[in-house]
Design a protein around this nucleic acid. Sequence first.
DNA 1: TAAAGAAATGAATCAGGATTCATACTTTCA
DNA 2: TGAAAGTATGAATCCTGATTCATTTCTTTA
Lengths: 202, 202
Amino acid sequence: MPYRPTAKTQARRTERRSALLKTALAIVTCEGFQALTINRLAKEAGIATGTIYKYFESKAQLCSEVFRLATEKEVEKVRAASFPEQPAHCRKRLANAVTTFAERAILGGRLAYALIAEPVNPMVEQERLTYRRAYADIFEQLIEEAVTKKQFPPQTAHVSAAALVGILSEALVAPLARGIPITDHNNLVKAIKQFCLRAVAG
Amino acid sequence: MPYRPTAKTQARRTERRSALLKTALAIVTCEGFQALTINRLAKEAGIATGTIYKYFESKAQLCSEVFRLATEKEVEKVRAASFPEQPAHCRKRLANAVTTFAERAILGGRLAYALIAEPVNPMVEQERLTYRRAYADIFEQLIEEAVTKKQFPPQTAHVSAAALVGILSEALVAPLARGIPITDHNNLVKAIKQFCLRAVAG
DNA sequence: TAAAGAAATGAATCAGGATTCATACTTTCA
DNA sequence: TGAAAGTATGAATCCTGATTCATTTCTTTA
């Protein structure tokens, strides 16, 4: 009974899968989810259309994974800024978290737009929800801690957290969506930071 | 040379067009843009598929008009709250504007979600951009006035305005998008209002 | 090397809607 | 009333991509 998958083939399989994800992410980074089709991905990866389906259940699943791949690192950075090793005043931590998000989004450019605002099909939208939720959870935890410590004024933490996500999305991406390039990064980030601090930390 | 359209037929035409819009809006209100198809609209309106195209260039145009129809009144209400007949302190005006938006969105329910957050095709997304922009413009004008009058602290008005739009969208619609019905209207609106006032009016 | 299971191939198929168009019906007015 | 022009019909067509699957190509092991 010859041939069963071996470590070597398994490895190749795994590798190819992540190569596919990387290629897909590259497409999304340059041209958004709208440009990510199975045919295009296959062509760019140099394999046949049908082969994609050996690696991914469906396009929906592929998109979700691409979204997560693009997102995980970002969320981690914001979490790290919000809950640093070194103890710090909550106000400072919030400022860092917001700045981290904003600066990375601006550097990300087209990708940030794809993740935050590009019109996408429902399955990707679902993933986006999860992503926003991840940020909101971080902010909520931070705000609750700060309110308990009397560092922030009393407020409804989950509303404030959602609001912060909204602020960041809209203030950063509205210009991108309108095709206005962000020219003055520093001032924009500063304005957003100040707004968030006033809103949450009083 | 018999028959040219007459006032009567013109009137019927106009009437039927707006009836179509109303029917389309009803569909969107109940089930979102995703449910608005030409076939369905035709069936509900009791006319043939092709006839729709006698009244609307394309589905894109139809959607845009539906969006506008749903939106115009809302924007007007917020504008009226922001710039009332009776002079009022800017803080109060902002509070009213925000409350107006929030309460109407909550009452709107499914429609609010469709207008603010439902995944839609690019043409509707374009209209949505215009809609957000309309709110942002109102807020921006109000904030600028308030800053000039020293009623609000100095800030970058257009960033604050975009941020307000973001807050309202996310704080109101994030729960809806997750399918969580909003149970405690009053507290939610209050929390949002307080957040906005802290953020903008200090 | 041969047999057998795994993987890859890519043209064909499917799906969901928008859009078209040849045909039939209405309205106007001489 | 009948010819001319406008309007409505809805089945057929088109479009865009995702998804399938019969066939071919690899890999492995006896």
